[in-house]
Amino acid sequence: MRASIACLTLGLFAASAVWADPEATSAPYREYAPMENYRPHVSGDLSLSGTYAYWKDPKNLDWRMAGNPEENWKLNWKFMDPPFNPAIHGGHFALERGEALYKSLNARGRFARCLGADKGTLKGLRARYPMYHRTLKKVAGLEEVIEHCAAQEGRVLQNGSYDNSAVSLYVASQSNGMPIRIDVSKGEMHAAWERGRRLFHMRAGRFNLACASCHTHQIGLRLRGTVVTTPYGDAAHYPVYRTSYQLQSLHLRFIECNLDTRTQPLLPGSRAYTDLEVFLTALSNGYPVTVPSERD
């Protein structure tokens, strides 16, 4: 069988010869999935997947849809996996640990201020992240800022570690039910949103896929057994408890999607991941912070 193939010969046409790509020395050649218009608010989904109507109000989800494999994805059930059990799961243990860690870190009240808490209260803080951080002098996600502020207290809480995500979870819990509200209309935040939007459409890796290849252009379609849901409303429930990951921050989820599509992942807190976080969080504007949440 093998031997018979030897008679097949190939002619290859390439836009430019492989061995001496004349453009390799100038700007790199990269490809983009078709750009869509996004609105920095959950309601923008109405002109993308149109499923917003079903998940607009997390308290009034239609449980019958959850039981129907054809309809389940429309629920955009990001903050709980069916059958949802709001009782005890690993996220609750992480929350307790996060509270204890936070209290010891903030013994002198400095940690809260470093995180950007108004008058020492955490209420509403998570809903404003990512934000421009004054001492870091850049746009940063909550986990990056936690790492930085913990270091100020002489503690190591690496971005993406369990304890970092546990503190993030505790901080988020103080904003539970409050809608995400980040402003990407101007300045550094706008620049990050624009970079993130572009990155979301840039193809990468060995399969040459962009985030948008799946998350914008395959919504409601199946990849093997998994149905892709809208990118709107993706960010308000992170870090999330998952049995396989214990606690997964949003940047670790990016790493997972990168690995699944054979793309070399980046470090948590990298500029590109933070830009993607700004973009996805803006698509969650108006959606309530919901922690601790659980997914498969």
Partner: peptide, 9 residues
Amino acid sequence: LTAWPTLSH
């Protein structure tokens, strides 16, 4: 996976 382009700026 190091041989293929990443998302890094």
